[in-house]
Design a protein around this nucleic acid. Structure first.
Length: 402
DNA sequence: GTCAATTCACATGAAAGAGACCACGGTCTAGTG
DNA sequence: CTAGACCGTGGTCTCTTTCATGTGAATTGACGA
């Protein structure tokens, strides 16, 4: 019976009209043919990279801008065009794109170099080798053939924050040594202040050129959305004012185009699920709420057990009363919770760090306050919307109690 | 009443340890010719 | 003789602990008016 129901469901699903024509255009890895409102930056970048076509080494470049400002998109787009010409003209040039933020991919020195070596056709184990060894392997691959490399390090600030500037220093020094190949580095960062913290030698050689991506304003986001809507949705599906609303939402926090596109996509999905003929403003509102909720739920559910215990302690304490709570109290509750669930107890030092990590994730709000004679502590309050709280609690209870 | 010293309850940093992973090379063992 | 199992060594990486130091204002207590 159920089987039959499913069959029907899938068939209906297949034949159902969708508001989407091609959802791909709304996904974040989609590269449109023309990039709107980034002409200036594209030109700058093209100017910097062009020498590569003549076999010269382009300057190392730093690209700044807030999330969703089109940095990655522009860089990818430009290098892609560059490669097309290079291939046509038979110029030996290679572009390596690495996102330093992706876990277990390139977020440490070892992994970055290992990743690079692998890109050059060396097989490097994910761990076990001395970093030196991996460098050697990488250099060897580099020298095997004369070629210019364009190394794009996306979210480079993550790499440096976590592991220091050692890797960057070594990479910039490759060109000083007498090697066959040359490497140009394009660093992409969300954080403008981040260069302040790195070794001056690295900084000067790394940021020979700088390109800054200002955030989009609401009008520009509208234009971008309109461009994507052409491809993504069927004709006349988008209700009046939807684009504007989407753009307004996204422009509200630093013109994040990625967010605007996600909003639109989720709104479309919601409309689909409700069998609506059009995507309306209400769908946008729902989508905004849903994105927020999903984000938090996902974050909470994927936390390690110890983290969940700490979070549960906070929720537990908060639900009992109105006033805010402090680290010491949370730690006491956490300890007893550990005893109940047979979990090893972490030190207060560690729990303190965990609390501050939750603060960074935006799940809680932890302000450091001084209570004078009565010490210094964090003033903790929960940032999760009322409506989502019960669900979060349920998730935590389920995963802790086992 | 005023002002500097004290004190609390943690925050914050640095360093080092534990344990999970993994590669590599050497040794042992069993199977093969 | 050789392939494969097994072990010890040495490496990375993440999560923790340990030890040390920092911090901001309420409180205290000496001091002077």
């Amino acid at each position: 019976m159920i089987e039959k129901g499913l069959d029907v469901f899938f068939e209906v699903f297949l034949r159902k009209d969708s508001v989407f024509f091609d959802k791909k255009a709304l996904q974040s890895n989609y590269i449109p043919e023309t990039i709107l409102h980034r002409e200036e930056q594209t030109k700058q970048l093209a100017n910097i990279l062009a020498p590569a076509l003549k076999g010269e080494k382009p300057s190392n470049t730093f690209v700044y801008g807030k999330t969703g400002a089109g940095k990655t998109l522009t860089v990818k787009h430009t290098t892609k065009k560059l490669m097309e010409v290079a291939e046509r003209e038979n110029i030996s040039l290679k572009v390596l794109y690495i996102n330093c933020k992706i876990k277990r991919s390139a977020d440490t020195e070892y992994r970055l170099i290992a990743h690079l070596a692998r890109e050059l056709g060396k097989s490097v184990p994910p761990t076990g080798l001395p970093t030196e060894e991996v460098y050697r392997s990488f250099f060897k691959a580099l020298n095997k053939q004369k070629q210019n490399y364009l190394l794009i390090l996306d979210e480079i600030d993550q790499l440096v924050n976590k592991t220091g500037d050692n890797a960057l220093y070594n990479l910039t020094r490759i060109n000083e040594e007498d090697t066959e190949s040359q490497i140009s580095i394009i660093g992409i960062s969300n954080d403008i202040m981040f260069v302040e913290g790195i070794d001056p030698r690295v900084r000067s050689s790394l940021s020979e050129e700088e390109i800054i991506f200002p955030p989009y304003n609401a009008l520009q986001i509208q234009a971008i959305l309109n461009q994507r809507v052409e491809f993504a949705f069927n004709k006349e599906i988008i209700d009046f004012g939807v684009i504007e609303k989407c753009a307004a939402y996204a422009a509200r926090d630093h013109g994040d185009a990625r967010r605007a596109l996600e909003l639109l996509r989720v709104a479309g999905e919601l409309a689909d699920r409700k069998n609506a003929k059009k995507v309306t403003i209400e769908h946008i509102d729902d989508a905004e709420a849903k994105i927020d909720r999903d984000r938090i739920i996902d974050m909470v559910a994927t936390q390690p057990k110890q983290y969940q215990l700490v979070l549960y302690s906070i929720l537990f304490l908060q639900s009992g009363r109105k006033n805010s709570l402090f680290t010491g109290e949370v730690y006491e509750v956490y300890k007893s919770l550990c005893n109940k669930t047979n979990t090893s107890i972490l030190t207060q030092r560690r729990v303190s760090d965990i609390i501050s990590e939750f603060d960074m994730l935006g799940i809680i709000n932890a302000k450091i306050i001084s209570k004078g004679r009565y010490g210094r502590t964090r003033d903790i309050s929960i940032e999760i919307p009322e409506t989502t709280l019960p669900k979060i609690k349920k998730i935590l209870e389920d995963s802790i109690r086992i």
